[in-house]
Design a binder for these strands. Structure first.
Lengths: 99, 99
DNA sequence: TAGAGATTTAGATAATTGTTTAAATATCTA
DNA sequence: TAGATATTTAAACAATTATCTAAATCTCTA
């Protein structure tokens, strides 16, 4: 199973994609994130946990709050997956290989 | 709800991502695709239908066979979504806007 | 150290999704 | 036009996922 399976599953939910969009603008606490949704805090916490396991976000406690922020490295891998699909020629993994 | 919701959902399944990878190499019939999986033909047909509704693939009947091929336009939109996330500054939609 | 605030964990339930078998549709060819 | 091949549609079932309420954990401060 692909290493990218968890990120792809994580991004298949619109609530989680909206969280990603919000974190692109600024780091936010779990509570601030939850405020933006018509959903309970435990539900949002569950979505944050899925994003965390997919390594799309990082969490860091600061006092009573837990701040969430984007982890862009996996996004880069996802972009590479898409590039590999849209490039006509198949299979090349390195830039040099592209002639 | 995002226009990209169906493509994101479609790509969340590993069977469907594998189909996409196969179609990147060459157009294939439903039967040829099904051969590559340890799964019944109706299951594969169902996955192909989801990819079709997400506009990630196109189908075209040729005699008894139905050929599937990639439709790259939606992939381009997905790449744009990811670019927008990884770009530091928020919200820009056009290239000129990028300074 | 008790109480309050922020967040997560647990457990239950509802909704969605993936899979199967059986039947239907479409096309080709003898 | 009957039979064979390719594929999809339908209906049922199983598995996964999203949501909720209630309870637990962690941290700060009076």
């Amino acid at each position: 199973m692909s290493l990218l399976n968890m990120p792809f599953k994580a991004l298949s939910d619109p609530t989680r994609r909206k969280i990603i969009q919000m974190l692109k603008e600024r780091d936010m606490t779990a509570g601030e994130i939850a405020e933006q949704f018509d959903m309970t805090k435990p539900s949002i916490s569950h979505h944050l946990n899925i994003l965390k396991h997919a390594e799309l976000v990082i969490d860091e406690r600061k006092g009573q709050n837990i701040y969430y922020s984007l982890n862009t490295t996996v996004f880069q891998e996802l972009i590479n997956w898409f590039f590999n699909i849209t490039d006509k020629r198949g299979g090349s993994k390195s830039e040099e290989d592209r002639i």
